[in-house]
Write a protein that binds this DNA or RNA. Structure first.
Lengths: 135, 135
DNA sequence: GCAGCATCTTAGAACAATTCTAAACTCCTT
DNA sequence: AAGGAGTTTAGAATTGTTCTAAGATGCTGC
């Protein structure tokens, strides 16, 4: 399964990023377990409590670089809050309105029909489906 | 066609909002023509250049109140930018990635099948489809 | 009409999330 | 080991939004 190895320095290098101590630490937290959703703030707290101090600016930089490199996907669900999703495959999201919790669901069972053609001069980039639910 | 009259004081009163000079001016700009997408900033500029000075705080207040009253719908497409859509009916959005432009498209031709059931303890609130396109 | 009062507006401060800056540091090549 | 491009960092700056508290305004009952 390429791209899923636990050799984080190698994966970062493949993505065109120097495997610095900070980026490797963040990659480990992000990609070692199953899929996750993080914010810059939550990841910063996590990396601090793991005794690997990384500045908040670096967390922001890394998240943006990982996203640009295709290692992460950014999900915008609420104004002023950006989630990063380690699941970069095809899937959509449940968003639980009051608490801001986000859950993935696979898109392979989902079919969307009847979408209009993209406005002229543009090409399709991605279709996001956000299913908003309330308690 | 109820709810579509041009008697803005009456419409605001129906929504439980006092028809102040500022709210009426904003409502006129928002609802007089066809459907539109605005940000607080863009609406503030517009109302200023229409010689009806309304403070930015009031624009934010009014947009939030209009949204809560169901006169507007908030669309979250990019981090740190909130659009308000005067079209509160069923429809979805094109989002043109680099420039941040937003276009409505009707949802009556669109069918979404195979969505999983909402997580237990929650009920469906809304399904947002954002079709991201690039130039 | 108008007094009284709850509601609304306002400028500016405050706040939250994110990005920038510029100096120090580190990974990599040689 | 030395050099240099690329990184990290703390703190300042920026951006978008909300809060504050003082004054203004629309509404109700008289």
């Amino acid at each position: 399964m390429p791209g899923t190895s636990l050799d984080f320095p190698a994966r970062l290098r493949e993505a065109g990023l120097r495997p610095t101590r900070q980026r490797v630490a963040l990659a480990r937290l992000l990609f070692e377990g199953g899929h996750r959703h993080v914010t810059a703030e939550s990841l910063h707290i996590e990396v601090k409590s793991a005794q690997m101090p990384v500045s908040l600016a670096t967390v922001y930089n890394a998240l943006n670089q990982f996203r640009d490199a295709g290692l992460l996907r950014e999900v915008v669900v609420a104004p002023g809050r950006s989630y990063f999703d380690t699941n970069t495959g095809h899937h959509h999201h449940f968003f639980v309105e009051p608490d801001g919790a986000l859950h993935d669901f696979p898109s392979d069972k989902v079919t969307i029909a009847g979408l209009p053609a993209p406005p002229k001069g543009t090409r399709l980039s991605r279709v996001d489906v956000i299913v908003r639910v309330r308690r």
